[in-house]
Amino acid sequence: MNRLNQLFSTKRENLLSIYYTAGFPELDSTVAIAAALEKAGADFLEIGFPYSDPLADGPTIQHSSQTALENGMNLNLLFEQLKSLRAQVSIPVLLMGYFNPVVQYGIENFCKKAVEVGIDGVIIPDLPMYEYESLYKQYFLEHNLSNIFLVTPITSEERIRKIDDLSQSFIYLLSSSSITGKNLEVSDTVELYFERIKKMELKNPTVIGFGISGNAAFAKACKYANAAIVGSAFVKMLTIEKDYIDKIPAFIKQLKNQTIAA
């Protein structure tokens, strides 16, 4: 059983995942941030590998990607850095990024390398279900690397069922149909959508992401899903704070506190 399945089989509520970009704010901050996040209480992590043209991302993550690339980050270097990951970090870790760098690295090689350094899953927003299933699935299965699919408020029920069948660890629910970095307004329509998904009783755990920036949104998301992901808000903190490692415990604490109170 990989670490993701293990996590969801033991803990099913109020799980917090944090996204950040590898090589940002500094080239070698990748593993240090992961270790600090685990220590502060994050339940799992998504490490973004930067891409020059991040189509699904808003200005904050565009900026972190661009800076990471200028810092010299690439997949080769990332896998090199991640060799020390598992000596310091035991929570599940996913990689998130766009498909072209993976294609250039070699898809099979990418899967193999990722598992070697202790990665549990990947999120590739621009690798849709059809192309995954017909062309690339075998490599992911062979290496027991979980591929995570996204669901949006306008994904059809039939398609969600299919995604549920193809998923091996969790399903990523987007809070709205939007790029990253917008604040989630938990309107009635959003709640209806979350409610609808919850009623589908999917086999896989669900995780809500995109637009979760503060503790209220986190608490709300956790009402409907097993976990929620905070990305842009954390990257913004990394952008602003010089002593970002020291600020991590307080950042996690304020996100999680509210759920206990709520």
Partner: peptide, 20 residues
């Protein structure tokens, strides 16, 4: 039928654009 010209083409889009 799947949108390919030999090895090229397809629809490598994020799920948000799938319905469109």
């Amino acid at each position: 039928e799947q949108g390919y010209y030999g090895d090229f083409g397809g629809a490598y889009i994020p799920e948000m654009l799938y319905p469109n």
